[in-house]
Amino acid sequence: MERIPILKMGPFLLVTIQVDLYDRLALNLENDLISMVSQTGARGVLIDISAVSIVDSFMGRILGNIASMSRIMDAETVVVGMQPAVAITLVELGLTLQGVYTALNVEKGMELLNKKLGSDLAQDEDEEDDQDDRDE
């Protein structure tokens, strides 16, 4: 069965969608990606849709689902490279992908994830510091 490859890059997963997804393939992607997140303990997921010319409400729902499911497993999702025509159409359709981060390209998406991860780590350290303070 045809599958979309998922690449692991450090703490992140990268998926590049190169074809117009039919529904089965999209659902497979959702499953595969979520199990990969749980297996690898990835902290972020990048989905590159720069080659996708049509995003309808089904595809939008898949993207939303991936983001919500990953978040529960402590990973943020960034959708990168959406084409202008697709963005205009989604807005007109009323689909604004709430809860999904977006970036212009993979590089900027990676930056965004690093920043999110960085501030998370900083927060964790702060909390640990607080803990230490209290211990003393």
Partner: peptide, 12 residues
């Protein structure tokens, strides 16, 4: 608002 939403979808 539509223009802003579309810009955000692009990641800006």
């Amino acid at each position: 608002i539509k223009t802003v939403s579309a810009t955000r979808l692009m990641g800006a």
